[in-house]
């Protein structure tokens, strides 16, 4: 009886110790140590071919579902596309005029266009979409010139940013991840906000001014503040509002992404080159004020 009790007590103690070890591990993980990051990159690199191979049946199944869906809605889709085509043709003629005006005005103002260079375009190997993290792995790494912190885009808009780089694969933190915060602005009213992921389907607009009156359907773009993401990249559109919070649907659906591009961010590069984020002012020639400059020196 006593032996059983002591065994039970030991068992409880051992389990508590294991829970404590796990909690310590979580806090160590939160410290974002370089060694752990490198280990994660190595394992991602090592397992990415297997993961890619196992994902193939799911990808094929998804393609079959897509084909069946498109065949079912073919007629409706055709009618919708025809009307959209008509509408786009009208917009195209208007845009051509506006574009030529814009080019002319930019020339007159000597406006410097900040072009972001595409470093690498690669295939999406897998997406881990659990309830704790939303990331994806792509088939390009340090060999291809990819660096940590670089923005990732698709043809529709911003996908996320590179968080770890291995020799032949990289991990991208998606915009919908809870740790993702994107400085953005509302394209119609111009109000700045932070689009924050929630580990769900949508992004939440935070730090939005109380004066701002966003419209449902309004497009959100990156503002370029902070220098991590370049300005003017599509983030998503506002689709709902509840309890005073506005929710944004990201334009690129991570599940439908097969290829993404990693772009260079010239703002980030320039920031790294500078000595500080807000450099100190250089000593300027002082105005000679009688009696004052003597004491300051």
């Amino acid at each position: 009886m006593l032996f059983e009790k002591s065994k039970l007590y030991k068992n409880k103690l051992f389990n508590s110790l294991l829970i404590l070890i796990c909690l310590i591990l979580i806090f160590i993980g939160k410290l974002d140590l370089i060694a752990l990051r490198n280990l994660s990159s190595f394992l991602t690199d090592f397992f990415s071919p297997i993961s890619n191979f196992v994902s193939k049946p799911a990808l094929e199944l998804e393609n079959v579902i897509k084909d069946v869906q498109s065949a079912t809605f073919l007629r409706d889709e055709n009618i919708k596309l025809k009307s959209e085509n008509r509408r786009l043709k009208i917009i195209e003629t208007k845009l051509a005029n506006t574009e030529s005006e814009l080019i002319e005005l930019k020339k007159l103002l000597n406006f410097k266009i900040n072009r972001n260079k595409i470093i690498f375009t690669g295939r999406v190997l897998n997406i881990s979409g659990g309830t704790f993290a939303k990331t994806m792995v792509i088939n390009g790494g340090s060999v291809d010139g990819i660096k940590k912190g670089q923005p990732v885009i698709s043809s529709l808009g911003l996908v996320g940013s590179v968080i770890s780089v291995g020799p032949s694969s990289s991990r991208v933190l998606l915009t919908i991840d809870i740790n993702s915060m994107i400085p953005s602005y509302l394209t119609q009213s111009g109000w700045p906000a932070i689009a924050q992921g929630e580990n769900g389907k949508l992004l939440k607009l935070r730090f939005l001014s109380s004066e701002a009156k966003p419209i449902i359907g309004e497009i959100i773009e990156t503002s370029g503040h902070g220098g991590v993401f370049p300005s003017g990249v599509n983030v998503g559109k506002i689709i709902s509002m509840s309890n005073g919070n506005y929710y944004v649907q990201p334009l690129p659906n991570p599940q439908k992404l097969r290829f993404v591009s990693i772009i260079s961010n010239s703002d980030l590069e320039n920031r790294k080159k500078s000595k500080g984020f807000a450099p100190l002012q250089e000593n300027q020639n002082k105005i000679n004020l009688k009696g004052f400059n003597k004491f300051s020196n």
């Binding site: 909690l23 591990l25 280990l39 994660s40 991602t44 993290a133």
Partner: peptide, 24 residues
């Protein structure tokens, strides 16, 4: 715990979170 750790490292999640989940 080790399986959880491996899963976290492969998926790039917060380290230790799946170890604790599986242990629980």
């Amino acid at each position: 715990i080790l399986y959880g750790l491996l899963y976290d490292l492969i998926t790039g999640g917060l380290i230790g979170i799946h170890s604790l989940l599986f242990l629980f």
